[in-house]
Design a protein around this nucleic acid. Sequence first.
DNA 1: AAATATGTCAACCGCACAAAA
DNA 2: CTTTTGTGCGGTTGACATATT
Length: 308
Amino acid sequence: MGRPPCCDKVEIKKGPWTPEEDIILVTYIQEHGPGNWRAVPTNTGLLRCSKSCRLRWTNYLRPGIKRGNFTQHEEGMIIHLQALLGNKWAAIASYLPQRTDNDIKNYWNTHLKKKLKKFQSGFDHKMSSESTAYDQSMSSKTYTENDTKSTIDNIKNHSGLMQSENSSVYASSAENISKLLGGWMRSSSTSTLKENRDFGKIPSEFNDFSASFQCYRPQKMENEGTNGIQIDELECILSFDGHNLDRMACDKSSSVLIDHEKVHFGHENKSKNDSNNNNNPPLSFLEKWFLDESAVQVEGAMELSQIF
DNA sequence: AAATATGTCAACCGCACAAAA
DNA sequence: CTTTTGTGCGGTTGACATATT
């Protein structure tokens, strides 16, 4: 009845792997290939369970694995993919073939999450310190849901795209993400916003409709602290499935927040309430801030901000 | 220099689902 | 169909390294 046990659970070794164990495992896999992990401890004499062998191979010994030193390019991809997919580390890792899910997960937990938190506290502080002027101007301009709908209709009309039957508001399928990233990876030169405004460039295979607003800061301001962002210097980039379509002024009277289900316009307070569901500020905000803070300007990394 | 706090990351744990007997 | 294990995944732990007091 049932399968035979995978391995004798008696005298199973735990803890860090020794170089000797690594050599035994690698040698065995070179001969037999990865897989059939149940047979590995028995055939090699390793006092490890099959699960431990598999983990050691996939996360550490497997050829082609890049360890540490995440590039800004990779960082940007992780940020975006995490925002799109959530903590689906295996799915995220599939877009970064040289990285393991464990590595990406660790990097997110130890580096990126911290940066995100720092950014948000800085963002909130800046917003609240400007609240008086901000609130006054807000009374004169608040986008409504109808504004959102008409904007989205405009995009559809211009792009010639039809909304899919299931009316998926946000395209989050792996297939679409793959296409997005594929397109991004293929583009070797730094594309400008003007170039991306060409509506005709939207791939017709994107049946799922999505719209989002991104804010980016054209240039680093003088005397700007790491915790502050000049909101009135920002622009909003209207994008469709990762392709920038249009840009607009983003003054203090229009607070914009990306939500993965909806596009929000309106008062700051509303946005803050909405952010209970999704604590991520606009993504390109984050990226610009990350990149500025690191004081290393990498042109290639900027492409990512524009593509998404 | 020693003690303590904090950061990093490899490895483990437990769960869900698939597959085999 | 049922039982049991294999596999893959995400969350968590804990040993070690480094920074701070």
